[in-house]
Design a protein around this nucleic acid. Sequence first.
DNA 1: TAATAAGATGCAACTTTGTTGCAAAATATT
DNA 2: AATATTTTGCAACAAAGTTGCATCTTATTA
Lengths: 140, 140
Amino acid sequence: MERELEKLLKKSRLSVTDSRVKILELFFNQQGALAHGDIEKRTGEKFDRVTVYRTLQAFLTKGIIHTIPTNDNSIRYALCKDTCEEGHHHDNHVHFVCNDCGNTTCLEEIIIPEIKLPKGYASNQVEMIVSGICRACKKG
Amino acid sequence: MERELEKLLKKSRLSVTDSRVKILELFFNQQGALAHGDIEKRTGEKFDRVTVYRTLQAFLTKGIIHTIPTNDNSIRYALCKDTCEEGHHHDNHVHFVCNDCGNTTCLEEIIIPEIKLPKGYASNQVEMIVSGICRACKKG
DNA sequence: TAATAAGATGCAACTTTGTTGCAAAATATT
DNA sequence: AATATTTTGCAACAAAGTTGCATCTTATTA
Ligand SMILES: [Mn+2]
Ligand SMILES: [Mn+2]
Ligand SMILES: [Zn+2]
Ligand SMILES: [Zn+2]
């Protein structure tokens, strides 16, 4: 595992540091997205808050993670697929936010449908966020 | 105009106050969304910051405005159509964020397409945010 | 219209979140 | 192993958001 992560970091031309490995590990051990706050909580005393900000920023610009917009002022972050690189994201999947457990999930298999914009608008990126009750919560 | 706004406030069982009228006016005089910060700037010295928070909160729960998720930690707010009420929003339109001018627009006429969720998921609400270049900026 | 009740506002104090510069520490390169 | 390059933590700060409470405003009633 550790090796895996190192490889990913190196591929992105990021030096391999404790915080980067640990935070990346968090993302791998969790399906679903993490907010900045989550990461602070889970890394506990280990790293400075500033380091978490800078680490997420680095992962973002290198195309290791992507953001998921929210309407509660707490951006979520989730792992990108291999196909994403610095400057070229290829995340076109739907995100699901559970109103019960609060988890945000990437529905990798659900592709965001095309839409026709009014004349004069040029689209660059499309986000689609569905909220409701997730599978796990529905059962429970 | 003033009358219009009063009517809307009363219909929502909100008492008619200076700040509510002025902030609601802002929304009416502007097509597109406003962030909390925008409102603070435009109302200048007039109201306390806390009042702006509480006013937006009131408008939200009464179904006068709706939120638009962002990935920069600054939720946008825009007017709802008449059909929205306390507890029952009926906003199913696409939102457009211009990367040039930064404006967020409600594309009322573009309905969010249906999607098929994986088994076990129940959808409650769907958001679709397109970013790119808006009509105004494309021309300029 | 005046008196009263209900509700909204501003202020102060505070918490949480995010930013920046810089010296010390860790990592990468030779 | 020595050096160059990056990253980290700390401190200090700025910005954003929250809460309780006294005062003022709006709505209701007589
Ligand atoms: Mn995703
Ligand atoms: Mn809208
Ligand atoms: Zn759930
Ligand atoms: Zn524009």
